[in-house]
């Protein structure tokens, strides 16, 4: 599993885990994120069962198990959190932050030890070590109960499936041209995002943020000026329209 430090300021770090060379064929590639601050760490969208062992091994290179106090699942999909039953054995004292809407569904992945912390529809702010993290509503993008994570100090927005692209293995980490990257995102967004109203609401919300890195769950990451390029592209893209004639 390739680990990339996206941000580091003292004990405040963002690490991205992705591009696992041992990933079985046929499984969508996913970006997992770890945020550390002080003696605490949170794993964002820790991934599916198939990725559990390489993820745990990679994470333990940076932080001891007792330091991972929190998990976050942006929504209920298997590539996001189907590994929960295994994390439940590895981190029995951790808390899982996830949409209230999905609690009774996510528990089907197996959760006997970890504590479910339901995020209300309007979102919430939590303290991790010495920083604050905000769970920003992203409902219907794509899941009907969905959140993104905003770290104002680092200026990083974990944007879940928004900005995601399905690419060939070995693709670069950063978007270098919106013109070349947009076609890789178009069908994904049109098919998976069902609501233009939800899209506009999200764009209005995140446009107010000073985003230095936008980090989706699949594909490349965005830095300025491509963050603004993306928001403009997304705003004009009709979504929920991938319907066969």
């Amino acid at each position: 599993m390739l680990a990339t430090v996206l941000y580091e300021d003292g004990d405040h770090r963002w690490i991205m885990f992705a591009r696992d060379p041992g990933k079985p064929d046929g499984i969508i590639d996913t970006n997992q994120y770890l945020i550390q601050s002080g003696n605490e760490a949170i794993l964002l969208d820790p991934g599916g069962i198939e990725l559990f062992a390489p993820m745990l091994s990679s994470v333990l290179k940076y932080v001891p198990a007792e330091g991972i106090t929190k998990l976050f699942a942006s929504h209920q999909d298997p590539d996001i959190i189907s590994s929960l039953g295994l994390w439940d054995q590895a981190l029995p004292n951790a808390e899982l932050y996830s949409p209230w809407l999905w609690e009774s569904f996510i528990r089907h992945f197996g959760m006997n030890n970890i504590t479910y912390k339901a995020i209300p529809d309007e979102g919430m702010t939590i303290t991790l070590g010495r920083i604050q993290l905000q769970f920003i509503p992203a409902h219907y993008l794509h899941s009907s109960g969905n959140f993104h994570v905003w770290d104002a100090k680092a200026g990083i927005l974990m944007s879940g499936d928004v900005g995601a692209a399905l690419e060939e293995p070995g693709a670069p980490l950063w978007v270098d041209s919106m013109e070349r990257h947009a076609p890789k995102m178009k069908k994904f967004h049109q098919r998976w995002m069902p609501s233009d109203a939800a899209k506009h609401d999200w764009i209005r919300r995140v446009s107010a943020l000073d985003i230095k890195i936008m980090a989706p769950q699949h594909g490349r990451l965005f830095k300025p000026p491509h963050v603004a390029d993306f928001l403009r592209w997304f705003e004009q893209l009709p979504v929920g329209v991938a319907i066969k004639g």
Binding site: A53, L56, S57, V59, L60, K61, Y62, V63, L86, A90
Partner: peptide, 17 residues
């Protein structure tokens, strides 16, 4: 089975798990 695999990788903070 997953833990055994992780042990074989010998990550730095293995003792913590």
């Amino acid at each position: 089975a997953h833990f055994r695999w992780v042990e074989a990788q010998k990550p730095e903070h293995l003792a913590s798990i």
